[in-house]
Amino acid sequence: MSQTPSELRYAVTHEWARREEDGTVTVGITDHAQEALGDVVFVELPDVGTVFAAADDAGVVESVKAASDVYAPVSGEVISINSTLEEEPETVNSDPYNDGWFYKLQPADSSELEALLSAENYQQQCEDE
C-alpha cells in the first residue's frame, strides 16, 4: 500500500506539495506515482528561475518502463532543484517524499496550495483509478 502523508497536498497528476516554514513549496512525485512508474532512471528538472503557472509542464520522469510528464502543482518561481537526482534518480523510488524531492517554488499565491487534494482525497483518487 502506498504512503500518502497527511501533512502534504496533492495534485490530480500525482505530484505532492509541501509548504515549508519559510513559505516556499517543495514539490515531488507521490509514492503511488513512483510505484506505478517502476524503477526511475532519469529525471529532467526545471531550471532555477523558471516561472510556472499551475499545471504547467515542469519536467519529465523516466522509468525503465515509460516516460511521464511532471506538472507544477501550483504557480510560482523555481528557487532550487534537487540536483542529486541527476546522478541518483533511484532516490525517487526509495524516498519519494524526502530525499526524492524535485524542486522548490516561491509560490505566487499561497492559497493555491489549499485548492489541491488532501491526502484522503488523493488516496481516494488512486483507489478509483
Binding site: 517502476g38 518502463k65 523510488n93
Partner: peptide, 10 residues
C-alpha cells in the same frame, strides 16, 4: 508478471 516487488533493475 512484468516484475516482482524487487523491481526490474534489481
Amino acid at each position: 508478471p512484468v516484475q516482482y516487488p524487487a523491481g526490474i533493475i534489481s
